[in-house]
Design a protein around this nucleic acid. Structure first.
Length: 414
RNA sequence: GGAGGGGUACCGAAGUGGUCAACCGGGGCAGACUGUAAAUCUGUUGGCGUAGCCUUCGCAGGUUCGAAUCCUGCCCCCUCCA
């Protein structure tokens, strides 16, 4: 890859790195940065900061990471910042209320699983990793004051998220105001040439430029990718909204979730997550409009690309076959979770249907399970059960189905 | 510190002594229709083997036959003044 980079023109390199980016600022500066780095015979230092606030990463987290990998593939220096200190503050970007504050211990616990997942994408051996506690833990109060003096309240309150909260008369805690400064300080500490992030990071990245200037550094260039919309098609992908495709989702689930996104999202997913060329994406999208491609088939391709990226070729092919079998041909999936029933729990060899559903974890309470039965969502061996007092004569290998997509194979055990 | 407003289920929001497990909207779930898409329509949305009970309207007490609703204390948020 690095050899190839030498052969690329600056313009070509800019084009590659701009793919899928919604905002690069200041305009034209990316090109200058690349030129300058070439003259100095060094790679660009490309910063991405992540706060390990959760353990389960999803596709949305990954967009800037994939961008970072692009840089890495072109021989630039990836600088990953684990925000062990920033995470205890909580990024207010795009929020309408303060984030819950995590303890430092919680953050460090999350960090491990977090980086494990990131290094499925990034080349670990070529990534410079910093915890921002490296510098924040050593800062004196005087230095903190010095840092705070770089920002004015007015500028802070101009931000859309804070402005909204002011207008809605909802609280803004002072610690939230510090966050952008911390993130900006990170940029100065690692001497970033480029900082990556979602479009909601624009403000924070701009603050980084100010602080770098303060330290006599040339200010970084920001590259912002769009915020990935979740599978509900309206809100940004976020665990609390339950609209995520998780990195650790098994292939079939990943495939199925991708198939359930609204058509309008296909382009975004293709561009942001898959390596499919822009030309081909255009062709696919045009095909849908002119009717030469069925939207379903294009989405099937997308789902395969997504699964391939995280689980490999074989898994993608299998997931697609499974999907066709279950939903196109209405057959049962090949693999499904097993629910073990101990014979001792049965009464006269029977089990109450509601209990069965709860045992299979398809409902959180008897009442919920009962509702599902009453609504005709429950099938055993494809036969609908509508009587919520039904005692099912348990049989090994039977298939319990709840709703359209949840299946479990029943295993009897002594 | 002073004055006023407010805290209701996943979110928003009604409800000011019983008819309130709490109107309505959004979201979620399920069914119909489909391409497991979107849109639309319908149902459902605290728990308990369903029968009445139990727990829930910021927290803790109190008044009352009866409290989301009244009283007292506490916590938190917003606005104006300082």
């Amino acid at each position: 890859m690095e050899v190839e980079r030498q052969q690329l023109s600056v313009e070509e390199e800019v084009a590659i790195l701009s793919r899928g980016a919604e905002d690069i600022f200041p305009e034209g500066e990316l090109e200058n940065k690349i030129r300058q780095a070439r003259e100095e015979g060094r790679p660009l230092r490309v910063k991405l900061g992540v706060d390990p606030t959760a353990t389960d990463l999803h596709l949305g987290h990954l967009i800037p990471v994939l961008k970072l990998r692009q840089f890495q593939e072109l021989g630039h220096q990836a600088v990953l910042i684990i925000g062990d200190y920033t995470a205890t503050v909580g990024d207010p970007s795009g929020r309408n209320k303060a984030r819950p504050q995590l303890t430092h211990e919680e953050v460090l616990e999350n960090a491990k699983t977090y980086t494990d997942q990131l290094f499925k994408i990034l080349d670990e051996s070529k990534t410079e990793v910093h915890y921002n506690g490296e510098w924040f833990s050593k800062m004196s109060f005087q230095e903190v004051i010095q840092l705070l003096s770089r920002m004015t309240l007015a500028r802070m309150l101009e931000r859309e998220d804070f402005a909204n909260r002011m207008r809605e008369q909802s609280p803004i805690s002072l610690h939230e105001l510090v966050y952008p400064l911390m993130q900006g300080y990170d940029s100065a500490m690692v001497r970033a040439d480029i900082e990556l992030g979602g479009t909601d990071q624009k403000f924070n990245i701009l603050v980084g430029r100010d602080i770098q200037r303060e330290f006599g550094q040339s200010p970084q260039v920001g590259i912002c990718n769009p915020i990935l919309i979740g599978i509900d098609g309206t809100e940004k992908m976020s665990k609390s909204l339950g609209n995520i495709i998780g990195l650790n989702d098994p292939p079939n689930e990943m495939f199925g979730k991708t198939m359930s996104i609204p058509d309008e999202l296909m382009r975004m997913y293709f561009e942001q997550i898959t390596p499919v060329s822009l030309a081909e994406i255009d062709e696919l999208m045009k095909g849908i409009q002119t009717g030469t491609h069925h939207p379903r088939d294009v989405k099937r391709r997308l789902a395969m690309e997504v699964v391939r990226r995280f689980h490999g070729d074989d898994a993608a092919t299998k997931a697609a076959e499974e999907f066709d079998r279950v939903f196109a041909q209405q057959e049962l999936p090949e693999d499904m979770p097993e629910v073990v029933l101990e014979r001792a729990r049965l009464e006269d060899g029977r089990i109450w249907i509601v209990r069965l559903i709860v045992t299979a974890q398809f409902a959180g309470s008897n009442a919920e399970a009962r509702r599902l039965v009453q609504q005709g969502a429950v099938k055993i061996d494809e036969e609908t059960i509508t009587d919520d007092s039904y005692d099912w004569p348990a049989r090994d290998n039977a298939v319990l189905r709840v709703g359209r997509r949840r299946f479990a194979r029943i295993r009897l055990q002594d």
